[in-house]
Amino acid sequence: MQGTVEGFEFGAVTPAASYLVACLGSALGLRCVVRSLNNRQSWKPGWLALGAATIGCGIWTMHFVAMVGFRIQGIPIDYDARLTSLSLVVAIVMVGLGVFAVGYRGATPVTLTAAGILTGLAVVATHYTGMAAIELNGSLDYDSLMVSASVLLAVTAAVAALWTAASYRGFPAALGAALLMGVALTGTHYTAMAALGVHLRGATDASYMSGMYGNSSPASVLLPMLIGPVVFLILAGVVVMFDPQLMLGDGDRSRSPQRRRGTVVVPERPAHPPRTGSLFDPLDQRTGVRDQRTAPRDQRVGRHTSSRGR
């Protein structure tokens, strides 16, 4: 027996909410990645890990926010907690592989493309793992052509978003990259849902099932699971707000390539924005204060070595 699938129980509310969550997670995550590229004095592993976790949580949260509006008429559905949790781990790990590759190998065309492919596949893997977590009296099948379209959309949009975020500076580029990632996530989800078919087991009477279980929505099951990832995204946003460079982009490359250390002017290393007081920067970098005990000692050692050379 073929089940009737409804993906928009609440109209445009769940698609709009899922898109906003996708854009938020993508914006925060991509800015963390760019932060690690533009400021070598920052704690790179911390920013990359935060970026991967934020994008992964954005992918997972987008999927299950959209699934709040999903139902099969007359049939109750539930979600397996282990597979649901696994889909979150898959999202973070796969995105992390691409993010750390960009962070440590640089924003080269090959690396950005590979990272975009991994991110797109993370979107797809999260979606289908999350769908596999659905428990119902039936089975799911998919149209292969629509599945291929969802994979192509996810990979293409993710590659374009990473290229935009890494290649251009400033708020417009960051916003454009986040919007592209939002398209990758929500577009993949609803394209994959269009490929979905449900076959109910046995001669299930839909009217009987509806009377027995009522027209309950999956919202009561999914909303408690969404609390943790949503809180994490909010906390990640707070961390980002402590570093204005993450929100505004790297606008400091036009500064003079020289700086003073003591009384000697030395060449500046490329692509070093000013210290911003980031939570991930070491204490001496956040305060900008040198250790007053070591500086005179270094100068004395330098003078002593110089006198010996004479």
Score class of each variant (00 low, 15 high):
1 M>D: 14
4 T>F: 08
11 G>T: 13
13 V>F: 15
21 V>F: 05
42 S>E: 00
43 W>N: 02
44 K>A: 04
47 W>A: 03
49 A>G: 13
72 I>R: 04
72 I>K: 09
76 P>Y: 07
76 P>L: 00
77 I>W: 06
85 S>C: 07
86 L>R: 00
86 L>F: 12
86 L>Q: 09
88 L>N: 06
95 V>I: 14
102 V>Q: 02
105 R>Q: 12
108 T>Q: 12
109 P>Y: 06
110 V>H: 14
115 A>F: 05
117 I>P: 00
124 V>K: 05
124 V>S: 04
129 T>Y: 04
135 E>F: 01
138 G>K: 09
147 V>L: 11
149 A>D: 10
149 A>I: 04
152 L>N: 09
153 L>H: 08
154 A>V: 00
155 V>K: 00
155 V>W: 01
157 A>V: 04
157 A>F: 00
167 S>D: 12
173 A>F: 13
174 A>Q: 06
175 L>W: 08
178 A>H: 03
180 L>E: 08
180 L>T: 05
186 T>E: 11
191 T>V: 15
193 M>F: 15
196 L>A: 13
198 V>Y: 14
201 R>F: 11
202 G>M: 09
203 A>Q: 15
207 S>R: 08
216 S>A: 15
220 S>T: 14
221 V>Q: 14
223 L>V: 15
223 L>W: 06
225 M>I: 10
226 L>E: 15
227 I>S: 14
227 I>W: 11
227 I>G: 14
232 F>H: 07
241 M>N: 06
247 M>D: 03
249 G>W: 07
254 S>P: 01
265 V>M: 14
266 V>K: 12
269 R>C: 09
270 P>T: 03
276 T>E: 08
280 F>H: 04
281 D>F: 00
287 T>L: 14
288 G>C: 09
288 G>P: 01
289 V>C: 04
291 D>V: 01
292 Q>T: 15
292 Q>C: 06
293 R>G: 13
294 T>P: 01
295 A>V: 15
295 A>C: 07
299 Q>R: 07
305 T>A: 12
305 T>R: 13
306 S>C: 08
308 R>G: 13
308 R>E: 14
